[in-house]
């Protein structure tokens, strides 16, 4: 018997690294994939930036509101692109019909998910860093100037994006590629409800509890407090963090249940619809 390969015990940074390397090789080999990372964030930033320029020169409130639109666009992109980066790396395995190879390998689900999280950060950095620099150049909006507040916003948004990415991955494992479109669409439910571009007060009263149950709502409210009132709302960030902990735990449990269901019904043997 072959005893030259040590028994894998516990979680392995090497296996996580192998998966990150796999996605890095893929990104590096495909310029359309790289372009896609920066294309939409840039288009969105320019459109909302120019709109903000126009209305801020015509209305006193918006002049005071300063850079809330462009700030909202950039933070929304962290949320949306973070989830998309996670989900697309996962879907690459389905598209490549490689999931079977991974599922019978020593790679553990938690290591696979850790690799997807790291890839979402890498993909986000490739897209968002140049776009944030363009925002400085064109609109004088310095996202990095938010300092520690940006770190708090980022941590909360990326945790939400990973939670949703984990949920989508579980649904695709259980239901096949028929659930693929969720990767692109599921986050848009958050767009009106988390009040990206307007305060929660604008929503009808019955939707307030829904909005306050979603962690990104606290981030976007916190951003407006910072940019309009020049106040950093630590309380909002802590609420968001607590809700994110609950959301992350819940979606992880749902993922485990969906994976067990996929093992039971044989859907891991299929990669089609």
């Amino acid at each position: 018997m072959n005893a030259r390969i040590a028994s894998p015990s516990g979680l392995s940074a090497r296996r996580v690294g192998a998966m990150v390397l796999r996605y890095w090789y893929l990104l590096r080999s495909s310029w359309p994939r790289l372009l896609d990372l920066i294309y939409w964030p840039a288009v969105q930033m320019f459109m909302w930036g120019f709109l903000q320029l126009y209305i801020s020169s015509n209305a006193g409130f918006f002049a005071r509101a300063g850079a809330t639109f462009i700030g909202a666009v950039l933070l929304w992109d962290i949320l949306f692109r973070g989830q998309l980066g996670f989900s697309i790396s996962f879907l690459e395995e389905m598209w490549a019909r490689n999931m079977g190879n991974l599922m019978i390998s020593p790679l553990r689900p938690v290591e696979f998910i850790a690799a997807l999280m790291i890839m979402s950060l890498i993909r986000l950095a490739i897209g968002m860093v140049p776009v944030s620099l363009l925002a400085i150049a064109f609109f004088g909006f310095n996202l990095w100037g938010l300092g520690l507040a940006l770190a708090a916003f980022f941590v909360n948004l990326i945790l939400t994006s990973w939670s949703i990415g984990i949920l989508v991955s579980g649904l695709v494992l259980r239901n096949g590629m028929g659930a693929e479109t969720l990767a692109w669409t599921i986050m848009f439910v958050m767009l009106p409800l988390t009040c990206v571009y307007y305060p929660v007060a604008v929503l009808p009263a019955f939707l307030h509890p829904v909005a306050w149950a979603l962690p990104p709502t606290y981030v976007f409210e916190g951003m407006r407090a910072l940019l309009i009132d020049h106040t950093f709302r630590l309380d909002l960030m802590l609420y968001a963090l607590a809700l994110n902990a609950v959301l992350f735990a819940a979606t992880s449990l749902v993922f485990v249940a969906l994976l067990a269901s996929a093992h039971r019904n044989g859907s891991l043997m299929q990669t089609g619809e």
Partner: peptide, 12 residues
């Protein structure tokens, strides 16, 4: 690249 990735996963 494929063999490297799978070799790492299998701890070769």
């Amino acid at each position: 690249q494929n063999l490297k990735v799978f070799g790492m996963i299998y701890g070769v």
